[in-house]
Amino acid sequence: MDLFYDHIGMSYNFEKYDNTAVDTQNTPYDYGSVMHYGPTAFSKNGLNTIEPLQSGVVIGQRQTLSEIDIQEVRLFYGCSAAGSTLPPTGVSPTIQTYSTQLTTFSRTFTRPRGSGRYYYVALRFTVSTSGVYTFQSTSAIDTYGCLYSSFNPFTPNENLMLSDDDGAGDQQFKLTVSLRSRQIVILVVTTHTPRTIGAVKITISSASGTSFDIKRISDATTTTKL
């Protein structure tokens, strides 16, 4: 992988570990792992932080466990069962929805990788328990999502953790990130095309059954402390 440190906002997420700290179960490098960072992971300016050296591969998918993911889990736990699915853990996922509306009265900014002015809604997300969270949009309009450690609409490329356009398919964004207990992040809901209005439903979920709180922000400038 190529790393672009000038674009990385949280460099500790890219620290390297040798085989004394990481057990790969002697499996090959897995570009398709559900845990693999996407191209703009922890970017501070919306540009790529990581790119595959091998051409034609996709990184950052959050749809399902890869075959190597499943193989590593089975090897680690000594499971000999066949098949490509894992048994349920017995933990019910936490799912919460939030409905909002982008209108001509909504605030505007120039989103990362965008040109022009885009209506947006900013949502403050507070984590009660550490876990992996997914933010996904459902809408009749083409949405775009950005996740920030802190957000200032006048400098929208700063403190950008993740952004996505069509990760959920059907022109909807999907952001998956590991968050710590008591961490606060800002989800900015906007659109692919400037000056687009419409209703958007956000689904926030965590497979580990963790809890969270989400509130709309009306301030022009928003900062958070971790």
Rank of each mutant, 00 (worst) to 15 (best):
D213R: 03
L47T: 15
F109Q: 03
T94E: 00
P93E: 00
G114F: 03
K16D: 14
S106P: 10
T85A: 08
F173N: 05
T40A: 09
R117V: 15
T176H: 03
D18E: 11
G60V: 14
P112E: 00
D165G: 12
T223W: 00
G209D: 05
D213P: 02
A81N: 05
T134Q: 02
Q63E: 11
T27A: 15
N157I: 14
G60H: 05
Y148R: 02
E15V: 15
V189P: 09
I95R: 03
T108F: 01
S150I: 06
S150G: 13
T196L: 07
S208C: 06
D2L: 15
I197H: 01
S33D: 04
F76A: 06
I50Y: 06
T191I: 14
I184Q: 07
A199E: 05
G38K: 02
Y31A: 10
G78Q: 03
V177K: 04
S11C: 08
G114A: 02
T221Q: 01
N152T: 14
T64P: 06
R124M: 11
N26V: 15
P156K: 00
I141A: 02
A220N: 04
Y77A: 05
F105R: 07
V189W: 03
I186S: 04
L47V: 13
D69Y: 06
A82W: 00
V34D: 05
R113N: 14
F135A: 08
P194I: 11
T100S: 08
G169Y: 00
T94A: 10
P39K: 06
F4H: 07
A199H: 07
D165C: 09
I197R: 02
H192D: 11
L179T: 07
N45Q: 11
G114N: 03
L47G: 09
S130H: 08
G83Q: 01
S43A: 06
I202K: 02
G90Q: 01
M10G: 09
G169P: 08
S115K: 06
P153G: 07
A199I: 11
H36C: 15
